[in-house]
Design a protein around this nucleic acid. Sequence first.
RNA 1: GCCCGCGUAGCUCAAUUGGCGGAGCACAUCAUUCGUAAUGAUGAGGUUGUCGGUUCGACUCCGAUCGCGGGCUCCA
Length: 640
Amino acid sequence: MVKVTLPDGAERQYNDNITVGEVARSIGSRLAEKALAGKAGGVLVDLSYPIKEDVSLSIVTEGTDEGVEILRHSTSHLMAQAVSRLFPGAKLGIGPTIENGFYYDFDLSHSLTEEDLRKIEEEMKKIIREDVVVERYELPRDIAIKNMYAQGQLYKAELIKDIEDDTVSFYQQGEFADLCRGPHIHRTGKVKVFRLLSVAGAYWRGKETNPMLQRIYGTAFFSQAELDKHLTLLEEAEKRDHRKIGKDLDLFSFHEEGGPGLTFWHPKGARIRNIIETFWREEHFKRGYDILYSPHIAKINLWKTSGHWNFYRESMYSPITVDNHEYILKPMNCPFAVLIYKTKLHSYRDLPLRWGELGTVYRYERSGALHGLLRVRGFTQDDAHIFCTPEQLEEEIIGVIELAQFMLSSFGFNDYEIELSVRGKGEKEKYIGRDTVWQHAENALKVALDRKGLHYTRMEGEAKFYGPAIDIKVKDALGRGWQGPTIQVDFNLPERFEITYVGSDGAHHPVVMVHRTVLGAMERFVGCLIEHYAGDFPLWFAPIQMRILPITDAHLDYAKKLQQKLLARNLRVECDTANNKINYKIREGTLGKIPYLLIVGDKEVENNTVSVRSRKKGVEGVFPVDDFINTVECEIRDKK
RNA sequence: GCCCGCGUAGCUCAAUUGGCGGAGCACAUCAUUCGUAAUGAUGAGGUUGUCGGUUCGACUCCGAUCGCGGGCUCCA
């Protein structure tokens, strides 16, 4: 007999080798109906899993996150089966679940098209109707490898070679079997609704030197309603796309004549940037920062000293030769701050020095990586370099974390992920500096994060070449994370440039440098902002805050005077002088996502009022001009 | 950079199997002077991304190239 402990604490006795599915059935037929898998002792197992010893068990059902994940994983197998049927000889890569769906990689000579996806979907539905049993079996590792080679499944063979266990498990459904840890749904008929979404190239195991496979992305749900909801969500996200909104709202553009990844800011986009930058400077001054300006290019030797030429060259624009000297467009601002630091001796009494710089850098991003404002080749970092003593380091990092949090929340970002980016194992040639120095730097970051009680993920191999970092990722409309703020501890550049401070003992000590941004880069930040608000910006940084709409030409004078009055109060206001009906003007203003539309006609002229229509609430009513000004000035101050 | 797809008027899109490139919006002119999401008429606009090839004839087929998109890789 075995004792099974259920989630509610109930204990039940069963015969040895009873399966998870049978336990579910013994509890209730409805549970059995909805059961997909089990969780025995915290490990996900199939319904066919035989229970051999006392265990705590929960049944994974359709309505749960784990259930959906199993469904998607099984759907990816189903897809692989369909692809294998339609394209004999297809070599299979991997087919995992991902957030909101799944994918499977295939190596086939035929290039998959959208129509192929529909055909594969049809074949998948056929397999669902066949409702074949999905069965798990195990093979000794060596035999499994031999089998895979015999079947021409080289990728699978390679995967098994990397598995350390003596036996590996497979799942058989009809004529199709696939290497998999499981668990899986027990019949193909359990798959309900799914959709194949796109095809894309993907390197085998993510390595550029490996062959490129064809990846099919798809998603699956337990109900049509859920799938529909998900597809609607994708459509909504498309509407929030900053590239579309940027065009519609006339914020920025890119030009073939200008070059890929080089942003042209239009007046309204530039206005947003200017507001953010002004806010940024003021906030920095308040927190004891000064700001710098530095050149866009510098002689190549500077970059050799800094290490960029050796460790960062592939991201740098090629040298420009002037008067027999080679110059490089700066990919980073740090060496410039160092040069300024070196212009005089610094006492420990002067530290920390916090030097901010809205520095425009140029990096050669591979053409395929470019993406609207979110990944460009020329961008302005809201950079700063802090020079401090080792003792001050922790406090400085905490100060930066707090500033970054303040900045993000000021712009409405409360959902972001924090990563601690450290060196990858066994690729030391990618980084400069000694182990002890790296250890020290990493520890400082870790301690600061812990002191702030922040949750973070440790990311191996994500460090910069000169030091580890705290990276904060904000999300776009599709939930893709983009690195924004970053805090990097650097003991290496100070050493390379031999920058020191004079301590109380009168001796020179190496200074510690912190590189950081609190927004990331203006381009990316504005891109994320657009998606976050879908172009519907809060009043305080909306490029146009209000537009005056005169009913007829007879009200133009009043409208113009009103505009002057509002401009004088530093409000961003337009006047719609076009010869159009008021309905038309309102429509234009609404589509332009202008926070306030101020309608003025006979009544308003007579009483010195405005009829206010807000984007948030629609018709707000008629207010004396000064009252309206008061209201919006409060709203701007509160950054609502 | 790699795989796949896409480039037609400022924008969003049409154009049988290769046979004289159209529409809506925006813009200009004229009329209209209007109260909370589109007034009407007229007009202007293009070497179909670029270069080359096939053809009597190319937006359409082929090649190259530039740019964009979805991913992979890479990163603020």
